[in-house]
Design a protein around this nucleic acid. Structure first.
Lengths: 149, 149
DNA sequence: CCGTAAGTCCACTTGCCTAGTAGATTTATG
DNA sequence: CATAAATCTACTAGGCAAGTGGACTTACGG
């Protein structure tokens, strides 16, 4: 499951990616346009800033902007930050491996092997998509909608 | 995330699939061999029985057995029963679609499109694997371990 | 250098979900 | 009829998701 936190985080990033780069945007702005609870968004943006996906400026004229070009922000990385590991069980996680407490022999575990495949399938989608891909996908669609009739 | 419930359920099914077919097995037996909390397992088995994956007999000599040959029990179906829809967001679920409350235009939603891919990737793994596949995978491994040295 | 607009930090809440447990009841067998 | 088994009902503890409230800090503009 994708939590609201991750969903809101992605929406905020997309909103920023759609702005002219290097423009700083108010949290309140993002919240209003994307219809997100402002205070909750505070937290999420802060977390993404601490992970260096965003930069912020305090005080009057402050706000948030992407710290990197959208091509360099992977969706997998964002989801991992906000929701934790992609793997359905910790014992197949590549970024946050932890043995599961109830398993005796890890490589005899048939469930583990299957869940490893699931992990890889998920990671394959999310780690090969960047913010730029998503941002672009909107423009393509707009183009189709507006001109391709 | 795969819950303990689903994990225990799959372990129990695998245990049953590994038995000679049509043998009824005690809950207590499964719990002991797979090291699962018996009372919790009660619940899970009952749920799978109500969904017709299992049959049960009460009273002395009673117990549980698979209701279908393992080839006909899909892992996806089991996980959906015990953990709910595979989709990371309800608005891309094929078996339990529900619009998400915060989205305005569904087919303009870029997150939705991406999550659709994730859903498909997960379903592709779990819906093409049956209990028989997992059961077999153990035997292949045993064979390798025991004879292929 | 002060007012004010912004982000930042800390503490708390509310409600639901997970992972159970306890105990009574029903059903079947020998 | 005793006993072994599943089944049903009810309850609980703890944790996490999704927030909210309020105080603090930083910086710009005048």
């Amino acid at each position: 499951m994708l939590s609201k936190k991750a969903k809101y985080g992605l929406k905020a990033l997309l909103y920023l990616a759609d702005q002219p780069s290097d423009k700083v945007v108010l949290i309140a702005d993002i919240a209003a346009h994307e219809r997100l609870p402002k205070k909750f968004l505070d937290m999420i943006l802060l977390e993404m800033r601490n992970a260096d996906f965003l930069i912020s400026r305090k005080g009057k004229g402050g706000g948030y902007a992407l710290a990197l070009p959208p091509e360099r922000i992977g969706i997998g990385a964002v989801v991992r930050l906000l929701d934790g590991p992609l793997a359905p069980v910790s014992c197949v996680s590549k970024t946050a491996y932890r043995p599961c407490d109830d398993c005796t022999s890890e490589d005899a575990c048939r469930i583990r092997r299957l869940m490893g495949k699931v992990r890889d399938a998920i990671a394959d989608v999310l780690d090969t998509t960047t913010l730029a891909d998503l941002s672009r996908s909107a423009k393509v669609r707009d183009f189709v909608l507006n001109y391709d009739i």
